[in-house]
Structure formats: structure tokens, C-alpha cells
Design a protein around this nucleic acid. Sequence first.
DNA 1: GCTTCATTTTAGAATTATTCTAAATTATGT
DNA 2: ACATAATTTAGAATAATTCTAAAATGAAGC
Lengths: 140, 140
Amino acid sequence: MKAKKQHGHPEAILQAAGIRPTRQRTALAALLFDGCDKHMTAEQIHAAVRKTKARVALATVYNTLHQFTAAGLLHEVMIDSNRVYFDTNIGNHHHFFDEATGELHDIPADNIHIARLPKTPPGRKLDRVDVIIRLRAAAR
Amino acid sequence: MKAKKQHGHPEAILQAAGIRPTRQRTALAALLFDGCDKHMTAEQIHAAVRKTKARVALATVYNTLHQFTAAGLLHEVMIDSNRVYFDTNIGNHHHFFDEATGELHDIPADNIHIARLPKTPPGRKLDRVDVIIRLRAAAR
DNA sequence: GCTTCATTTTAGAATTATTCTAAATTATGT
DNA sequence: ACATAATTTAGAATAATTCTAAAATGAAGC
């Protein structure tokens, strides 16, 4: 296994990322970093954490997701003008987006090979390459 | 001779796309389909059309951009949660996104070659493949 | 265990982009 | 020109996200 999934205690993950593990952050980390890749919106994460006993304000969910993103624990995936997903898979990979259902699925990085990438303009460095394969319902 | 890409009168372009060329639509088409590739938000387009003598309501700009998109005259590019660009380049191409400046630049399709595209899931057809190369200021 | 101070969380207000609504205008067919 | 259907419009409504300032919590020292 190449890239190791996030697992272990949520608190340890936060410590390692230099984020103070408060009750709310730990609850969110426990939910997000359970070893399974997820694509969730802030609202979905808010709903999910409220199903556990923890109470976390929506504003805190947003704050925390942005902190996690800045720390490299999450990626934001911009797919649709009114859907921003936070992706717990921070390894190199790409996405299928099903426009019929709004679902997002991972594509392992080695299933796509990009040749002839243009050179990066001067004074810039490559941050990342997003590939989104958009799908629609097949005609029949 | 004029530009090689979109050519002909704006009205002809609309007719060909099966869109009735009203005054507002013609004004927007004239602005957008002048042969130069553009990436503009609805607000930018609204501001630009108001600089000409034409008066077009913002709601009409939105309606019209969506009609043009549905007709294949424009593409929407989703880059950033609060930046939706309408792209007048409807040919096969990709984008550099400069996170430092918020600018979007075209990459001709043949500058990127994607091999080993995964197979499309059953019941779905491939709509399009978006490649976004995200750039940041270079470290030094 | 308490006190202090910085950090974090919170509810609700504010903001922003976009969509909706229903009335007014404009275009098309006869 | 007339009737009818399509389009445009201003402003209200919506939805996601951010902001604000006050309250709660956490860490460090006594």
C-alpha cells in the first residue's frame, strides 16, 4: 500500500497537523478520518456530526473544514456552482462526477495518465492537477 | 477577414443554435462571440454589456447565458466556490488556474494527452473531461 | 483547584451569487 | 393590426457561506 490512509486517534491526527484538538475538532476528525474516503458538503458533515451526540455549530463546521484543508487533511473539490465537496482522500486521484445524481466517485491516479503536460508559467509552481470526468445518463 | 472561430453575425449564430435572436440576446452574442476566447462571470458580462448602449437586466444575462450553455455556445467552468466562468471557447481544451491572481488561461487540448481513461460506468455516457492545472506563486 | 488570558465556538446577522415570480414588454403568425 | 406566445424585467426570495461580537473553553501558572 502506497499512500497510507488517515487512521489512528483523531486527536493524534490533529496534533500531527498542528491543530489543537478541541472537542468539536476531534468529533469532526473522528467522523471524517475513519479510513474510508468520503466526499461530503459542509451541510452533510454538519448533519452527520449532529447524529452523534456531539453538538457543533454550522459555523464551526465551516471553520474547521477550512482549517483541515489548510493543514492538508482535506481537499476541496469544485464540481458544480452550488456543491463544494470536502474530500478526505488527499492522495493523488481524480473524479467521476455523475450529473444525473450529483454523486462524486474517485478514480485512482494510475487509471489516468497525462502526457505532454504544458510547462508551468514562470514564477508559478504546479499546485495540483484536477481531472473531472463528467457523466450523464446514457441515451437509450 | 475577421476572426476564425465564431464567425458570422451574432444573429446568424443564434439562428443556427435555434435561439430566437432578440435584442438582448443579440447584444450578448455580439459581445461574447467576437472571435476571441473569453472567460467571464455573469456579473462581468452584465457590466460589459451595460457599457455598450444596450440595457439588459441581470436576470436576462443569467437566463441567456444558460440558454447559450444549453445550446452548446458556451461552457461553464467551475474553478472556485465563488467564481463561475462562462467560457466562449467551446472547442476541446483545458485550463490553467492561477490561484495567486484568480486568472484562468486556456490550454489547447493537444497540449495534454490523457491515456488510460477509465471506462464509463454502465448506464452513463461521458459528457466531458475537464482538466484544471492549479498554479501557485513559486516558492523561492 | 482556581485565575488569567488567548483561543475557539456560537447564534444569528450579513453577504453574495443566483434563481424565482408575476407583471410588463416584445415578437410572431394570421 | 390583433391575438397569442415568448421574453424581459425589477425586485423578492433562496441558499451557501462568511462575518461578528459575545460566551465558552483550554492551557499555563500559581
